[in-house]
Design a protein around this nucleic acid. Structure first.
Lengths: 162, 162
DNA sequence: AGCATAATGATAAGTTATATGATATACTTA
DNA sequence: TAAGTATATCATATAACTTATCATTATGCT
């Protein structure tokens, strides 16, 4: 998503996402796809935008319960499944948690997550040459790619200084 | 590991690993590293070699219990942690399960797993150009890499025909 | 033998995820 | 607009995965 210039808006220092613009875009995409962005699903997205870090399903459930006290584990997992199918969020497999995809409006890329083992912050990157190489590798194995999990664990710039 | 030519040996059609040679190599490496390959740890390796598929911790626990009835969850997780530290096995993050690393004797590579969503079989690949690209990406972000999780989910050759 | 370290045993609890059946809501089309 | 279909939600229960803690035993070293 393009950078936000409205000083009134809440823009994340972490993933550069402007919450207002992101939410509006998700609304728009949902309308275009003719899918149902229910208030429950909307709430989960809002929570994830606010969090600015990877959230476990139960982190999200605890917060969702403040709005919808009846929420139970299946509630949150259903919402997460839906949002993943639509490409609005990613599961971080090596953390059992979930993040907003900063590029949900452009699904033509594979995300590479750089995950800091100290502060848990995640940088999402893309790299077309790696994508190409992976395609070649898959082709060599006659393997039909459906989904890629690329997670690099290590220490981020900030945490290296500490 | 090099290919086994002894017809008496049990050699996996899946990952090409000869169990006898693999076990001998693990013994040797353990001796060289002066680490303790206890019978419990040995048992877990044997079970994983025999399985020829990714095994969850509880899959392994159930089988280990036939040999060591007192085994409990921490028993298996301790063994798995040890074997991962030593690079003998990998955790498959997107499956919550564990596999023998077919190249434990050469730790100088990053493994790329091609995981079939139909039959669950896993092909382990390596690719130095992807490794290089990842290094560059990390460098650009001043990110210190400690561990890479590269898992490609899709459909394997066999399952495409079915 | 005595000490330090590493490994195992045992209990308990924490965390993550799914199966299932019932109910409600929204779209579709006759 | 009423009936039918598909989708979403609610509620209960349980399955699956993982770790913390403390006690005990085995091993390696001086």
């Amino acid at each position: 998503m393009e950078k936000c210039t409205n000083p009134q808006h809440h823009c994340s220092p972490v993933n550069q996402l402007c919450h207002e613009h992101a939410m509006a875009k998700i609304e728009k995409i949902s309308y275009q796809r003719n899918i149902r962005l229910t208030s429950q699903r909307r709430s989960v997205i809002q929570l994830m935008l606010k969090a600015e870090r990877a959230m476990s399903a139960y982190d999200l459930l605890d917060q969702l319960r403040e709005i919808e006290p009846q929420a139970k584990p299946p509630t949150i997992y259903r919402a997460l499944d839906f949002l993943m199918e639509q490409g609005f969020i990613h599961k971080v497999e090596s953390m059992n948690s979930y993040i907003i995809c900063p590029h949900f409006d452009d699904p033509s890329h594979i995300s590479i997550l750089l995950i800091c083992n100290r502060c848990q912050q995640i940088i999402e990157e893309h790299c077309s040459s790696i994508e190409n190489e992976l395609q070649i590798l898959a082709k060599e194995n006659t393997f039909k790619v459906q989904h890629s999990v690329l997670e690099i664990r290590g220490v981020c710039q900030k945490c290296q200084c500490i």
